[in-house]
């Protein structure tokens, strides 16, 4: 859920900033339209104002600096929470996610358990990724053919699945629930129906399921 929380905070920050800038420029544009009706004509003689322009460029650079600082700090926070370091305790579960044309396979390495399903237009038999709620789960993403992308829109997290390469991301699902996952990287004719579910269940229930 870390991704979603940070996404919402940073999105709020940037959308407010963008709205402010848009309002200011729209106001300037309307001012130009309003002033152009006056009868007195154009009295301006200057075509440039180097000091103002230079000062303005510095302000812009400062704004860019602030945006980068705030967003990069947030990014650090997310990365911290979503990578498993060697010193961290082992994640509660580790799942190898294999994307393929055109569905998903989930291997629970420790328990020798494999889940897959049928990705079709009707979502009845979609593969379901079962995870323990409230505990860190490490996903190792890979692909057996082309590039796919593991996306859970409600959680604002996305990571590409490459052949011959593994990307890892550790996620903690705060509470039990079920979310739809999608393939985000175009991967051929059946890309539009390459969905899956993630279902977070209480840890005891997860243990039961994974042992079964």
């Amino acid at each position: 859920m870390q991704f979603r929380q940070v996404f919402e905070d940073i999105f709020r920050f940037e959308i407010l900033l963008a709205a402010g800038v848009f309002a200011a420029i729209a106001a300037a544009l309307l001012l130009a339209l309003a002033l152009s009706r006056k009868k007195s004509g154009d009295r301006r003689r200057r075509d440039s104002h180097p000091l103002v322009e230079g000062g303005y460029a510095l302000v812009l650079a400062a704004v860019a600096g602030v945006i980068v600082y705030i967003t990069a700090s947030a990014h650090d926070e997310v990365r911290e929470a979503s990578t498993t370091n060697r010193t961290d305790p082992a994640p509660a579960a580790e799942v190898k996610v294999t994307a393929f044309q055109w569905c998903w396979q989930f291997d629970y390495a420790r328990n020798d358990k494999t889940v897959t399903g049928v990705c079709s237009e009707k979502d009845r038999k979609l593969p379901t990724l079962i995870v323990p709620a409230g505990q860190p789960v490490k996903f190792n993403l890979t692909s057996s053919d082309v590039i796919h992308s593991f996306w859970i829109p409600d959680l604002a997290v996305k990571m590409d699945a490459f052949p011959d390469h593994t990307n890892s991301v550790t996620l903690t699902f705060d509470h039990p629930g079920r979310w739809l996952g999608r393939c985000a990287e175009f991967c051929g004719p059946y890309h539009p129906s390459m969905h899956f579910y993630v279902r977070a269940v209480p840890p005891e229930q997860y243990e039961q399921w994974v042992q079964a």
């Binding site: 940070v6 996404f7 967003t71 997290v157």
Partner: peptide, 8 residues
Amino acid sequence: VLDYQMQD
């Protein structure tokens, strides 16, 4: 952090 949602 926004692109992880918006990308693609």
